[in-house]
């Protein structure tokens, strides 16, 4: 059943372009992007508040797109790798609707939506499960930060639009189409960006928080196999999935530096427990510690952006 309230396009159905490069026999012919940053260096981040004057608070976040060694000029969608682009608006605190039951604290609603052009494959307008997942994680992360009892009987809405998402894998690895899915590694960076941008927008809206929260991602990655032996796993901060051949596990935390507190943690993939770490097998604790380090990095950017906002508001 097609959505009659939108313009739906041809009834015959369309498909995304398939590029002749996908047909290349050897992956090595194509230049795979590789990470040029050091393992503990984050991507450059741009954060700005106040992009939506009609909302009580808003922010925009952009991550620099990964640079490839042999840079191909700006080109077609098939060639480019994207950076992350997110906008966030906060509406409220505003009174709850009349028919809502009494609430002694603020009611937080989060809403994360991909733009239809945000990913390599066009997305629809109806929210899918991964978007709802992101929304729930974001809500968990933010609930621990907002001092809710200061606004009884009111609600606040946090809305994030993902204008450009992170890719789950390099497009060259997607040639098979039938290959096992890439495990949605891109979602981790997206969630981390969502947390940071939402935090900036909430601060812009002037909602009381115990601290500003920021997100950080770390991952254990593995290069290609060398002579039948798995290459050792390596810990990296702020991974870009398209730059790594294999991601073994990834962790995202929402971290409050002032209290040394984690309000949301999500670990995916294959990771050992405890503290017994070996040379090529980082432990769970190392992974989360590194994610916290990444969060501290984005926290610095966040504080810088908020200071800029405060200076602007005071000057007015």
């Amino acid at each position: 059943m097609s959505d009659r309230r939108r313009v739906n396009g041809p009834s015959g159905g369309t498909h995304t372009p398939i590029f002749s490069k996908y047909l290349a026999k050897d992956v090595k012919e194509l230049n795979r992007p590789t990470r040029v940053r050091a393992p503990n260096v984050l991507r450059k981040m741009f954060l700005k508040t106040g992009v939506t004057p009609s909302a009580s608070g808003s922010a925009y976040l952009e991550m620099e797109p990964p640079r490839t060694r042999n840079a191909i000029g700006p080109g077609l969608a098939s060639l480019s790798t994207s950076g992350l682009k997110l906008t966030c608006t906060v509406h409220g605190p505003r009174p709850l609707p009349k028919n809502a039951p009494f609430s002694p604290h603020i009611i937080l609603t989060t809403h994360v939506k991909y733009a239809p052009f945000a990913t390599r494959k066009r997305r629809g307008y109806i929210r899918d499960s991964s978007e709802r997942d992101l929304g729930v994680h974001l809500e968990t992360a933010l609930r621990g930060v907002i001092i809710g009892d200061r606004w009884p009987k009111s609600g606040v809405e946090v809305i994030i639009t993902i204008l450009e998402g992170e890719e789950d894998q390099w497009w060259g690895d997607d040639r098979g189409r039938g290959s096992i899915s890439a495990g949605e590694w891109g979602m981790m960076s997206v969630l981390s960006g969502c947390i940071t941008v939402a935090s900036a927008a909430i601060a812009d809206a002037g909602i009381d928080c115990v601290d500003v929260i920021s997100g950080g991602v770390s991952a254990v990655v593995r290069g290609s196999e060398i002579s039948d032996r798995l290459s050792p796993g390596m810990l990296v901060l702020d991974p870009v999935p398209s730059e790594h051949e294999e991601i073994v596990s990834a962790c995202i935390v929402a971290y409050l530096p002032g209290r040394d507190e984690i309000t949301d943690i999500w670990v995916k993939g294959d990771i050992g427990y405890g503290s017994q770490s070996s040379e090529d097998n980082p432990s769970y604790e190392e992974l989360t510690d590194n994610a916290v380090q990444a969060a501290l990095g984005s926290h610095r950017v966040l504080v810088g952006a908020l200071k800029e906002t405060a200076a602007l508001k005071l000057a007015r």
Binding site: R6, N8, P10, S54, T89, H91, H111
Partner: peptide
């Protein structure tokens, strides 16, 4: 005839309360 141009406007992005 074939509906080759498909414009859609989305306002529910939090652009206005």
């Amino acid at each position: 005839e074939l509906d080759l141009l498909v414009p859609n406007i989305e306002l529910a992005t939090g652009c206005s309360p």
